[in-house]
Design a binder for these strands. Structure first.
Length: 851
RNA sequence: GCCCGGGUGGUGGAACGGUAGACACUGGGGUCUUAAAAACCCCUGGCGAGAGCCGUGCGGGUUCGAAUCCCGCCCCGGGCACCA
């Protein structure tokens, strides 16, 4: 006797969903064994369907999580019904500051908190009916996982891609830790909103900048949402230009060396031409300042130079008379936080160092200033200022009465016409020696080449991207697997000693010292040196959470494997990921880091592909009453209530019906009744269906609907797919008629990705034994049957609709014209005029142009 | 400032350059009911009795025909931003 008999004949979503969730578990409908995973990867049609694994917050599953996962799950279920072996795993990104802060606030230890959260999340995820393979799941905080996170660190270390260096880094004074550039939004911590400070600390960096060019170029080869690609492109920020050298020639510069000896080289100045100094500055031992510019063509207009106040050469070149003023200015800028300093709209300030450099193009001496509008982090920390053709330089030159020279002019503009604003447009060079008259674009290369010949410049590509700081002075993360030995220096922990376990400590609260809480535990950090056997100290920083998530997709197929991070054969068969869906807020964080780690592992020959995600689609955000959901606004939606009242199938369908999946939508409680009614009506239609031949109009609509739904689901256009199914059901039930079984059975399959529990139940009630996802195949449509015999044909007069008539499909132009001309309304609007021209769009429209 | 999206009824949203407003929600009317709920049916962009006219942020243009393409603006959301 079937379970169906225990279930009422009116649609009761809770009953239905409970039944099918239990059955999926007991029959392993959604899961693979390791053997199956291996076999399917080789013999089957493997399809790796990935979604961004959640951070298991204490608040439980958020409606935004459900929205994201439902869209991805629908795609996975669709692919399974199309006959693919779909691997759809889920896991938990549970390390990180967020969990740690919450644990601190609640006074619970994260090692107790996180397992509870994960348990609750798991329960909620199961309740929504995702097709997850619960046999292959990860939790980044488990030693079985972070052991391999540490292993990846070691691989990068061995390849020279993980380096420890002292550098100015972003410090969040509230989280008490260093942040990556990507985690600083508008000068503030993306987590807590506190303004970040710059501290000079010795940190571990991943040299992602080594991969800047490839990270950029490969974007052309992957099928990703355009918005995401653009975000990465902007973040990498490639600029092409030149590095130009300006030798320091000020007479009184640098009067003493460190040892007190006189500096004599400046004396050459009086025996040498500017040209000689420029081309021989190295052998003459001139100090030179390098600048990066995207406009080498304007070098003749460089009337002064500006260094970032922190530039290392400032001390050396500043003249005695200017020393006090320069020191004062540097102190002032050091106090300013980066936010105010980076605000572009404030007044320009700066001060003269007294030093002079040679403009290598003009051979003239120009002054060197320091100003905080030049940033040490970008380029060389120094610029050649071309006030005539750069807005910032123009503003600065105005403020300090520095000379402004025009070097680019449009036709008809005099070379020495005074400038009232910086001109950044196209034109020809003027006041530029033998380059006068040359187009800007050509001059860019020619000027660089000319300077390069004289040893004063070289072409240069510059990136905005910085190396990825991965050290975190916090507790809740994987310890960085490195030791410090007085004799041997930095010693990586041998791979067979992994993991370096995160100890359970009570006092995991971070402080402002810049040192991790782990550093308070000698018993943990003091250990033996694996190299010399002496005493070594462990690194007490942990790694960034984003390293955990930069490789989790590699782990899923191999989850549980305790010999390897990822098994080569499984990886080869299942990766790269076929479809990845997630939020665009990770466009430059997770998605960039994951690409970097994958590329590095590829170069180290651990994997044979360099892009992890073949196709990526960003989904939209789900908002409430036009605003982002947040606790402070009090507009947070608790999904559980809706699941209790309408069931998971309705919630899933409703969320997808809200609007275009890739744009998001506004959650309105009243709207949920639409999809709920639809599922109810479908239920009734299936239960009341009769075995008899399809009515022709229904058959036509069926084929049209299969086509529409198939195309729309493939394009993630879920809202229109649902609308098409509703429309079809309206036809099937039109006028209260009894539906044909052959009309509703395919619809049950079409709806299955959206409302899987309901589909299972109806599939069973239609007499099928096994799960719809294991026995049904996605319906095919016949293009010939997908179109109706008659069409509503529109007749226009001069582009305006004047008649609509039912016509046979395929009607000829002349027949259509005859019918149109016979129409009294058409005649009325022609008003006796000649038809000069007719436009005929087959099966759609005829436009009579009268004049 | 630069780079992406987007702007369509009371609301969410549909529309290969070819019937603007599919599909829903809300609202209104009705059927059934002692009544209510549910369910079902009809109406629901504006003006107009109607024929029809007007309508897709604004102003131009291309076209037989523009929500859709082009030019110039305005507004909203997101990314980047003294990046040289």
């Amino acid at each position: 006797m079937s379970d169906a008999t225990h279930i009422t004949d009116t649609y009761n979503p809770l009953e239905v969903e409970r039944k099918w969730q239990a059955r999926w578990d007991s029959e392993g409908t959604n899961t693979y064994t390791d053997a199956e995973l291996r076999r399917a990867g080789v013999q089957g049609r493997p399809f790796y369907n990935l979604m961004m694994f959640p951070y298991p917050s204490a608040e439980g599953l958020h409606i935004g999580n459900i929205y994201a996962f439902t869209g991805a799950d629908i795609y996975g279920r669709f692919k399974r019904l199309q006959g693919y072996d779909v691997f759809e795993p889920i896991g938990f990104d549970a390390f990180g500051i967020h969990s740690e802060n919450f644990a601190l606030k609640q006074g619970v230890h994260p090692m107790e908190l996180i397992p509870q959260n994960i348990e609750r999340f798991t329960r909620q995820l199961r309740r929504v009916g995702f097709m997850y393979d619960w046999n292959h799941t990860v939790d980044t905080t488990q030693r079985e996982y972070y052991r391999w996170t540490q292993w990846i660190f070691l691989q990068l270390y061995k390849a020279g891609l993980a380096v420890k260096k002292e550098a100015p880094v972003n410090w969040c004074p509230s989280c008490n830790t260093v942040l990556a550039n990507e985690q600083v939004v508008a000068g503030a911590c993306e987590r807590c909103g506190t303004t970040v400070e710059i501290r000079n600390l010795s940190q571990w960096f991943f040299r992602i900048t080594e991969y800047a060019e490839r990270l950029l170029n490969n974007l052309a080869t992957i099928d990703w949402s355009e918005t995401t690609k653009k975000a990465q492109e902007n973040w990498i920020g490639r600029s092409e230009g030149a590095e130009i050298v300006f030798p320091v020639v000020s007479e009184s510069a640098n009067l003493e060396n460190d040892d007190g000896s006189e500096v004599v080289r400046q004396a050459f100045r009086y025996f040498l031409t500017a040209d000689q100094i420029v081309s021989r500055w190295q052998e003459l031992e001139y100090t030179a300042i390098r600048v990066f510019t995207t406009r080498p063509d304007t070098v003749f207009g460089a009337t002064y130079m500006v260094l970032a106040p922190e530039h290392p050469l400032v001390d050396q070149i500043t003249t005695r008379e200017r020393r006090k003023a320069v020191e004062a200015y540097r102190r002032k800028t050091a106090k300013k936080d980066l936010v105010t300093r980076r605000k572009g709209d404030k007044k320009k300030t700066g001060t003269d160092t007294g030093a002079r450099v040679l403009n290598p193009a003009t051979g003239k001496e120009i002054p060197v200033w320091i100003a905080d509008y030049v940033l040490m982090e970008y380029g060389t920390g120094a610029i050649m200022a071309v006030p005539g053709h750069d807005e910032r330089d123009f503003e600065f030159a105005r403020a300090y009465k520095l000379p402004i020279v025009r070097v680019v002019a449009l036709e008809g503009v005099g070379a020495n016409e005074p400038m009232i604003e910086a001109y950044t447009g196209p034109g020809r060079l003027v006041n530029s020696g033998h380059f006068d008259g040359m187009e800007v674009d050509e001059a860019r290369h020619e000027v660089t080449a000319w300077l390069a010949e004289r040893n004063a410049a070289e072409p240069r590509v510059n990136y905005r991207l910085h190396d990825w700081t991965i050290s975190r002075q916090r507790y809740w993360g994987p310890p960085i697997p490195v030791l410090y030995c007085d004799d041997c220096g930095i010693v990586p922990v041998p791979e067979d000693q992994l993991p370096v376990e995160l100890p359970y400590i009570e006092d995991f609260k971070p402080d402002a010292s810049g040192i991790s809480p782990l550093a308070r535990h000698r018993e943990w950090y003091l250990t033996g040196c694996p190299s010399c056997g002496g005493v070594a100290r462990r690194e007490t920083d942990v790694s960034d959470t984003f390293l955990d998530s930069a490789w989790y997709f590699l782990r899923y197929p191999s989850a549980g494997n305790d010999r390897r991070a990822f098994e080569p054969s499984l990886t080869r068969n299942w990766l790269p990921v076929d479809s990845y869906i997630g939020g665009n807020e990770h466009a430059v964080l997770h998605l960039l880091y994951a690409r970097f780690v994958t590329m590095a592992l590829h170069d180290l020959e651990w994997i044979d592909f360099e892009e992890p995600f073949t196709r990526f689609r960003a989904h939209g955000l789900i908002i409430k009453d036009g605003a982002k959901m947040s606790k402070s606004r009090g507009n947070v939606i608790v999904p559980d209530e809706y699941i209790e009242e309408y069931g998971a199938d309705t919630l899933r369908t409703y969320l997808m019906f809200l609007g275009p999946y890739q744009e998001g939508g506004d959650f309105r409680a009243t709207g949920i009744t639409g999809p709920y009614n639809f599922l109810n009506r479908l239920w009734d239609a299936v239960l009341g269906a009769e075995d008899r031949p399809l009515y022709p109009a229904v058959e036509q609509k069926l084929h049209a609907t299969i086509r529409k739904v198939t195309e729309d689901v493939e394009a993630l256009s879920y809202n229109t797919a649902i609308a098409a199914m509703m429309e079809y059901l309206n036809v099937v039930r039109a006028g209260g008629r009894t539906p044909e079984r052959a009309a509703v059975e395919p619809l049950v399959i079409l709806v299955a990705p959206f409302a899987p529990h309901l589909a299972e139940e109806l599939w069973e009630r239609l007499g099928n034994e096994r799960s719809v996802f294991r026995s049904a195949t996605w319906p095919e449509y016949d293009p010939a049957k997908a179109v109706a015999d008659t069409v509503e044909f529109v007749v226009q007069v001069n582009g305006r609709v004047r008649a609509r008539m039912q016509m046979a499909r395929g009607i000829s132009e002349s027949d259509a014209r005859d019918a149109a001309l016979a129409d009294p309304n058409v005649q009325r609007f022609l008003d006796g005029r000649q038809v000069r021209k007719t436009i005929f769009v087959p099966d759609r429209l005829l436009n009579l142009v009268a004049g």
